[in-house]
């Protein structure tokens, strides 16, 4: 196993940030840790990168114990913390050179690994990191985390606050890195990014809700979901919630995802009810669960 986490708990300031969690990450896997802010993602990352010591449990990264063998781990992992931790007053090239030096390597030595990403920011290599756009900072931070050719790469919310275009490009880069035999653990609050991982763990309030492949995880969702739409979204949500048999009501893009408490749900009955509330343009169709539906059902 590239990462193994067994029964880990961590609390500080009386808050239980992690509650007895366990999972493994296989070598070469692109593993996603999916959950909102405050779920415990950053705490877990800090335990894995030897920055924090868990109160309980055993954690191994690249075969080394995070407490007793932390020095070996620090030699072979790459870490990109939540905020893009770059020296704002150093140029792009100086930042990269500095991180190469402290890891005892040079840019040239591992250039092939970062080449694809670096050429995108190379035109700005003399610009100070503080003057880069969010997307470029993110790419530079990734280069810095990769420069020593780590075996395991930890990316803590690399796409938070970044626009959809840069996010998409970033995930394409991660996919290519995976081909170079680097194990990647990435956290994100964006549920739609989960589908791009090999396997994911859903995390909420310090608990792991589920660990599986994105395809398998939605199968855990057993209820039938219906896409409901009408002329007035707000009224629709309110009346669906008032409906005596409603199990869950969540707006999802242009639709509302609705589930019913009964097994013999009849969409015409619901239509009649909604019409009686003066809603028109009614549409009710079956749809399949997404990771976000699963997450909300599990977190409920």
């Amino acid at each position: 196993m590239s990462i193994s986490i067994v029964n880990v708990s961590k609390s500080y300031n009386k808050v239980n940030a992690l509650k007895n969690i366990s999972f493994d990450v296989k070598p070469g896997e692109l593993f996603g840790l999916i959950g909102p802010d405050g779920a415990g993602k950053t705490t877990l990352f800090r335990i894995l990168t030897t920055l924090l010591v868990a109160n309980e449990g055993v954690v191994k990264v690249a075969g080394f114990d995070v407490v007793t063998d932390y020095k070996n781990i620090r030699k072979c992992v790459g870490y990109m913390p939540g905020k893009f931790s770059l020296y704002q007053d150093l140029t792009v090239e100086e930042n990269l050179m500095f991180f190469a030096t402290i890891f005892g390597t040079t840019i040239e030595e591992n250039y092939d690994l970062i080449k694809e990403i670096y050429i995108q920011i190379a035109p700005f290599k003399d610009r100070r990191a503080g003057k880069l756009s969010g997307g470029m900072k993110q790419k530079l931070a990734l280069c810095c985390a990769l420069i020593h050719k780590p075996k395991v790469l930890f990316l803590d919310e690399p796409t938070t606050g970044v626009d959809p275009v840069s996010r998409k490009e970033f995930w394409e880069m991660l996919k290519r890195l995976q081909d170079k035999n680097i194990t990647i653990l990435v956290s994100t609050p964006y549920m739609d990014e989960a589908a791009l991982c090999d396997r994911i763990a859903l995390i909420q309030d310090g608990n792991i809700l589920e660990v599986d492949t994105p395809k398998a995880i939605v199968k855990h969702y057993t209820k039938q979901i219906y896409n409901v739409s009408a002329n007035n979204m707000y009224q629709l949500i309110n009346y669906l919630k008032e409906y005596p048999f409603s199990h869950s009501v969540y707006p999802f893009g242009e639709f509302v995802h609705y589930t019913d408490t009964r097994t013999n749900f009849n969409s015409n009955e619901l239509k009649t009810y909604l019409r009686s509330k003066d809603l028109s343009n009614l549409k009710i169709d079956k749809t399949i669960a997404t990771i976000e539906d699963t997450f909300m059902e599990l977190a409920k």
Binding site: R46, T49, T50, L51, K71, R74, K75, V77, Y79, P81, G82, K83, S85, L86, Y87, Q88, F99, I102, F103, G104, C144, A145
Partner: peptide, 13 residues
């Protein structure tokens, strides 16, 4: 403050 200390700690330095 800027978070680079985390990276320095997680380095062989």
């Amino acid at each position: 403050e800027i978070g680079t200390m985390e990276i320095l700690l997680v380095s062989p330095l």
